[in-house]
Amino acid sequence: MSLTDWINKGRLKSPWVVHFDCGSCNGCDIEVLACLTPLYDVERFGILNIGNPKHADVLVVTGTVNHRNKTVLKNIYDQMPGPKAVIAVGACGLSGGVFREAYNVVGGVDKVIPVDVYVPGCPAKPESIIDGVVKALDVVKTKLGLA
């Protein structure tokens, strides 16, 4: 196995996550956090909530994008070194959810940055979020040409 193969193996085994709450009602946030807890323990998959975009591989976004946080979201995305993936979680992150028509709401995450995986739910269940990260790894695999 060459070094590149080893690195690719590492990439699939160690997705570090940065979570950004755009404008969520906390429902999805708390479920994202719940994934870290003993019952779900995503560290099994090497997933760490690293909190710093510069260290992260996967950006998990919950909540609607509004006019103030859209630049923040873009900034965070830009500060992640590649290869990277984005997961939008919850109805709000997907489309704006119940708040789509509120005056300060821009809409789903994909209006600002490209989204690789959509995790539906209001809020999304922790299992569903785990599925999302696994799916994101598939996306990364495809991007790397390994699939």
Binding site: T4, W6, I7, N8, K9, G10, R11, K13, S14, W16, T37, P38, D41, E43, R44, F45, G46, K54, D57, Q79, P81, G82, P83
Partner: peptide
């Protein structure tokens, strides 16, 4: 902490992955 925990080789995966990231 009553968790299952990562595989023992996890630190190596992490470092290998980091080595493959874009320089920033």
């Amino acid at each position: 902490q009553s968790r299952y925990g990562p595989p023992i080789a996890q630190p190596f995966y992490d470092v290998l992955k980091l080595l493959g990231k874009d320089r920033m």
